[in-house]
Design a binder for these strands. Structure first.
Lengths: 223, 223
DNA sequence: CAGATAACTTAACACCGATAAGTTATCAAT
DNA sequence: ATTGATAACTTATCGGTGTTAAGTTATCTG
């Protein structure tokens, strides 16, 4: 019924050193299925079917189902970080940068709701992310450690607030508090939408713009 | 190892008209297990064990596992609504009422974090809650219909904004959008704290007060 | 050509939510 | 007091899940 996710050259066993290519095939298949059918409905066996391999074979490359999801999250957030990188290279007034980064953050979350849910809302967030403080020493994180990309993205958002402070804007709160409040606003928006996608929210773009206005206006003292 | 959730008089079959008491027993047991072990780890069989009946017996009282969850969510909402009711009886300036309701909401969430998580953040919220619209005509809802309590709670929030508008304040957004934005702010705050309790947040009371300020100031046009 | 071993498969386990079909206790009416 | 209906259950089972153990096969190295 949906056997169109077929991979080229099925039934072939990988040669000696080529296991990692199979790993990549698994990730490609898993991403497709997770996005199409959701986490619960995507089973190990189905992923294996698409790859063209038996179910236990996946355990050669991943510890368990969650590890596959985690790897996908990392890939996803890596791309968010690239977007943020691009934003950081542009020369912008810091407030404008905040708005754009906020928009990018929200957009990204809404475009990858499951990954966002898993890394920021599941409560199963790997401890490495949780314990690692914010003011997160972006440099000190191993960017290849699974689960670290989410923390890096988060840290980058926080960095913008330091920049705002350094460029002489008056804030209604200490930077830390301001950053936390604004992030909580953005997170609240995407969390609500992601968790209740069928809810008849008012127009999404209005909500996004409104929340950004509300957050910036609430935190930055406007002259 | 944890057989201390035992119900009094196990092994007894209910008399003819008393099925509903069994239903309540199931809900008590389910709540305890869901809160302690989470949604996935709480199985039909385990609930049945605690209640002291066989697993299929639960299907006499609930359509499926989600229906149990739905009933529990409703109970939680109901108690939140009772708190809100108390707030509505006091005569207050509408903006002050908004602030107090917000505070009550946050306090409720932080005092019952697991229940809050289960109801608002688990992602397992049954579909009936999701589908039910807001703009909910509070009167026209049957408060006993499963899933209606959430809509009632939301409707109450919108009512406050209508009240604010009627008493001569201008809003930056239509009432429904305003209500959504403010709720998202509050939800973002409690969601962040609940999900990352170990995170080195700045002072909690400052965050709460700050978020309320930010939300009210962002939505109500101040003269 | 002979191990060694990476890359797999088959079989199975313990569990899950859910259903079908049978059983038992309790009631109302005779 | 007996009967019959039926509410309140139980047992057996289904098709599925994630995961593991143990065996197989193909490829590379010496």
């Amino acid at each position: 019924m949906e056997r169109d996710l077929s991979t080229a050259s099925v039934g072939t066993r990988k040669r000696r050193g080529e296991g990692h290519t199979r790993r990549d095939e698994i990730l490609v298949a898993a991403r497709e299925l997770f996005l199409r059918d959701g986490y619960e409905a995507t089973t190990i066996r189905r992923i294996a079917d698409v790859v063209g391999v038996s179910a236990p074979a996946l355990y050669l490359y991943f510890k368990d189902k969650d590890a596959i999801m985690l790897a996908l999250c990392d890939q996803t957030f890596r791309s968010l970080n690239e977007v943020m990188d691009g934003m950081e290279k542009q020369q912008l007034a810091p407030i404008e940068r905040l708005r754009r980064c906020g928009t990018a953050y929200i957009r990204f979350a809404l475009e990858h709701p499951r990954q966002y849910w898993l890394t920021f809302m599941s409560g199963n967030t790997p401890q490495e992310i949780k314990k690692r403080g914010h003011k997160p020493d972006t440099q000190s994180l191993d960017p290849d450690a699974p689960g670290s990309q989410g923390a890096i993205a988060f840290g980058r958002l926080m960095g913008i607030f330091r920049e705002i402070e350094n460029s002489g804007f008056a804030l209604n709160y200490p930077v830390d508090t301001a950053a936390e409040l604004v992030w909580m606003c953005l997170h609240g928006l995407v969390a609500a939408i992601i968790n209740n996608p069928e809810f008849p929210w008012t127009r999404r773009d209005v909500l996004i713009e409104g929340m950004l206005d509300l957050a910036v206006r609430g935190v930055v003292k406007m002259p």
